[in-house]
Design a protein around this nucleic acid. Structure first.
Lengths: 240, 240
DNA sequence: ACAAAAATTGACGCTGCGTCATAATTTAAA
DNA sequence: TTTAAATTATGACGCAGCGTCAATTTTTGT
């Protein structure tokens, strides 16, 4: 019994090691630099052993993406419950996303690898579902806030849109801005001094444009963001 | 003289052929499927000849990206001049972007390959500058509209933001939504029935949130979008 | 203790990128 | 037209990476 579990643990531990090393390689030198041969050498085993854990290179990357999305999803969940007021909850989720990109950029960067590439198709359905699951949960967190806002009367759903389509808009602007900010070199030299604050302002403008109560100025919005940020930092720190 | 130019033309023609074939390969089967060997076979020359035209694989992709961005930039330029009213010009650029993704998806898809990848670094500075140039021109088209709007009094620039940061917000939402729409499978099954219209609504909400005159309802906005779309289609068609 | 099952190994086949010495072709001058 | 120099074309080669598999070692269960 003790021997079984020892071997089991050894294998589990190695899986974690593999992911750790793979993540470092990816972040240091990009997707091309992730080599199964080198990974095996660094792990201290033969290459064949790697393939007992993952059927191919893509699955390793996908596993890392799963880890990343899980972190994100947890942060979204926390953010969605940081306040009672629907608009503040929405803002908090935006902040969580910002926080995720800035303080967990190792995860965010890895999410990016998969969004474009041919990686998706080569993985087992199992992992695809998992990723979809986390995506759905993130979507769900935000959609919940929207529905609550409608129920409470803070937001009147435009006849043209579903609640999910409202979410999609905010998803787009945060996703878009974070991708642009993260891997576009030299936005600063284009007159974009503080992309993060700019996006918060745009989010505020959009919320105002939907008449999401309480409507507020950018200055008021920034003050609330500051408060929320403090509260979130405490929650996030206590989490990890 | 005739013989020189004949050889010259033959070489130019081949460069176009290379790009044509490479584009098809990329679109059909993704980045991994772009093989220099196969490309040479299909071109009907030896592999070495390819390397007389492009120093490496990445340069080919970058060349395709340049073509793509040039198309986009031209469409933006046309859109920015389709109306006198600043808000309509802004909407037109959004439409142009939508049009670009939908009707020139072969170019849009190729832009995506380069945004993440390790491709960027491996190319000659010359090509990097060219890409930056087109990016600047697109940015410039939109920033021009914003500045005009401010000058005319349609928009009051918030004290917190620069004109370029305003552009950045709209860039983010269009870029983000188009990437999400294009390569996220099954948005429809998430309750997002018409992502395109949703984004137009969000854009409208954002413009309203900035008090960009004339403020309008989503329904009014859609009507104007329809008009603009007609006008743009004529212009775009006559262009190509 | 021992046989069956599971895990490990690393050489092997294959594909792909980029190079380079050699060959073919084009250009330009005599 | 002839011919030498310059340009262009060729494809075999070196190298690296992915995934496989038969042979070997280790673990498990009896």
């Amino acid at each position: 019994m003790t021997r079984t579990s020892r071997k089991q643990l050894e294998i589990q531990q190695r899986e974690a090691d593999i992911l750790q090393i793979a993540r470092r390689m990816l972040l240091e030198d990009g997707y091309e630099a992730l080599s199964m041969d080198k990974l095996a050498v660094e792990l201290g085993t033969a290459k064949g052993t790697l393939y007992n854990h993952f059927p191919n290179k893509e699955e390793i990357v996908l596993a890392l993406v799963c880890q990343a999305m899980q972190v994100r999803q947890q942060m979204f969940g926390i953010a969605a419950s940081v306040s009672q007021k629907s608009r503040e909850r929405m803002m908090a989720i935006g902040l969580a996303s910002e926080h995720y990109v800035q303080k967990h950029s190792e995860h965010f960067a890895i999410e990016q690898f998969v969004s474009n590439s041919t990686i998706r198709g080569k993985s087992k359905p199992r992992r695809q579902e998992l990723i979809r699951h986390f995506e759905l949960q993130c979507m769900g967190s935000v959609a919940g806030v929207v529905r609550d806002a409608i129920a409470v009367g803070d937001l009147k759903l435009p006849s043209m849109l579903t609640a999910e389509e409202i979410v999609f808009g905010f998803w787009s602007i945060t996703f878009g801005s974070h991708v642009l900010t993260y891997d576009r070199p030299g936005l600063n030299e284009l007159g974009i001094n503080d992309a993060w604050r700019a996006v918060r302002c745009h989010g505020c403008a959009m919320l105002n444009g939907f008449n999401w109560n309480p409507v507020m100025t950018f200055a008021q919005s920034e003050a609330i963001f500051a408060e929320l940020d403090e509260r979130l930092n405490i929650l996030f720190d206590s989490q990890s």
